[in-house]
């Protein structure tokens, strides 16, 4: 039988993969993909734990809500990446260091 632990393990694997993408990739798009993976890992957890709330389905509702937000976030993030690309002619996060004081 598929228990909660299985969900959590899968979710953790997805989170780890996302995390890796976020920290290690040299492409902003891939970082964004990593973020999406982290969000999805979280959503998977929400759904998995939603099982314990069979009256309100809070987990499922929240997961849907998060999916919508993630979609919106991706849209905005892609727009930012586009602008970043136009400005810096690169989308490698390593090359964008304007946050550091000169």
């Amino acid at each position: 039988m598929i228990t909660l632990t299985h969900f959590l393990v899968v979710s953790a694997c997805i989170f780890a993969a996302g995390m890796y993408a976020v920290l290690a990739r040299r492409n902003a798009i891939m970082v964004l993909v990593g973020i999406e993976l982290i969000i999805n890992a979280a959503i998977l957890n929400l759904v998995a734990f939603g099982r314990y709330d069979s009256t309100h389905y809070g987990g499922q509702v929240f997961a849907v809500f998060a999916i919508v937000l993630a979609a919106a976030g991706v849209a905005v993030a892609l727009a930012i990446i586009l602008n970043v690309y136009q400005h810096y002619k690169t989308i490698n996060p390593e090359d964008i260091r304007d946050l550091k004081e000169k």
């Binding site: 920290l23 290690a24 970082v31 996060p93 390593e94 964008i96 260091r97 946050l99 550091k100 004081e101």
Partner: peptide, 9 residues
Amino acid sequence: QTGRVQYYL
């Protein structure tokens, strides 16, 4: 404060 987002993260 390197300015690199990924480092911060």
